[in-house]
Amino acid sequence: MECKVETPFSFSLEDDTGAVIVQTAPGKVVTHRGGTITLPCRYHHEPEDVDPKRIRIKWTKVSDAFQFEDVFVALGRQQKAFGSYRGRVSLERAGPGDASVIIHNITLQDYGRYECEVTNDMEDDTGFVNLDLEGVVFPYYPPSGRYKLNYHQAEEVCRQQDAILASHAQLHKAWLEGLDWCNAGWLEDGSVQYPISHPRDQCGHKDSPPGVRNYGYRHKDDERYDAFCFTSNLNGHVYFLKRFKKVNYLEAVKACQRDNAVIAKVGQLYAAWKIQLLDRCEAGWVEDGSIRYPIINPRARCGGPEPGVRNLGFPDKKFRLYGVYSSESAQY
């Protein structure tokens, strides 16, 4: 099972009053897109002689905005999963008092905080489990230019590039790993932030300390910024399609199709760079019409001293000629 817990596994007591006591793991459990994970939760009764058929177990996903999404409920032998979790969630059933659930084929949208609630008639108790994904945060702006996206448009452009809007925790982690970006972008909670590792006057003030700058929560319809997207392990692999000549955008799309692949999305290229360690010093088309290339080992002729995915912008699709990055899908 592809699962790990970031702190040494032990159960923490959430509440020691009432007839039902729920215990969950500290820290967070970590997996990647396409993986399988167990969200740990146990309970016991006071007194202990309670009919198991009267125990109700409910799992709910809780967003930063305190919105609740039903995930799974079980009462005795009756079980039901909801929404996108249907067919992917089941009880672990590792013994008496086990309320843990197993989630298969993890998606980007599964990232977040989960509540485990156990009810015995009128008594209940809850615990929380944080599910994290291994992946990469990347800044994104569309061909129309900088600061053109309201919140809903930012959500959509991330989705189109095989990603979701990043959380504050994901952006903060990316900043700790060196992400430095001088343009503010939407996050999934509706806030607008940007990470600065090397303070300079054009990015606030050169005497300001490094950190994640925060504009706070902005109007989701009226205000416009860039986006910070998050993606995880990709289903397949990305590669630079070797050709004898460079091509325009339409020719690039067709070349990938002839190779039984599709032109790579921006999120897929970032995932290949971060997870598959793709290193290619050749500029190529990607799905949104931009020209990019991934660098693991920086060298002078490959665009600067830092690793990253280089972005050469959005050239004329018809007349400018480059290589192309293709994405070939695979089964997990």
Rank of each mutant, 00 (worst) to 15 (best):
V309R: 04
D98V: 02
G216L: 00
T17Q: 15
Y322W: 01
Q109H: 11
L312T: 10
C229A: 03
E115I: 08
F230A: 06
K206A: 14
I295A: 06
H104Q: 14
A261N: 00
A227C: 01
A330I: 08
Y85I: 00
T38N: 09
E92F: 07
R88K: 10
L13A: 13
K61R: 08
V192F: 11
S100N: 01
E48S: 15
L133Q: 05
I103Q: 04
Y325W: 02
G185P: 05
G76D: 02
Q160Y: 11
F230W: 06
R292Y: 07
S329W: 10
P52G: 01
F244S: 15
P8L: 07
H168W: 14
S100A: 00
L75F: 10
V118E: 00
W175S: 09
D132F: 12
D180G: 01
A99V: 02
L176Y: 09
E251N: 06
Y332E: 13
L91I: 04
R200C: 04
V212D: 01
P139C: 03
R113K: 10
A25Q: 09
I106Q: 06
L250V: 14
L149S: 05
V238C: 03
G83C: 05
D221C: 09
L321D: 03
L165W: 02
L91P: 05
T36N: 12
H168A: 14
F82K: 03
G185T: 02
G313W: 05
N214H: 06
V22M: 04
A283R: 05
Q257S: 12
G18P: 00
R258F: 10
H205F: 13
I103Y: 07
L133K: 02
K274N: 06
K265D: 06
L171G: 07
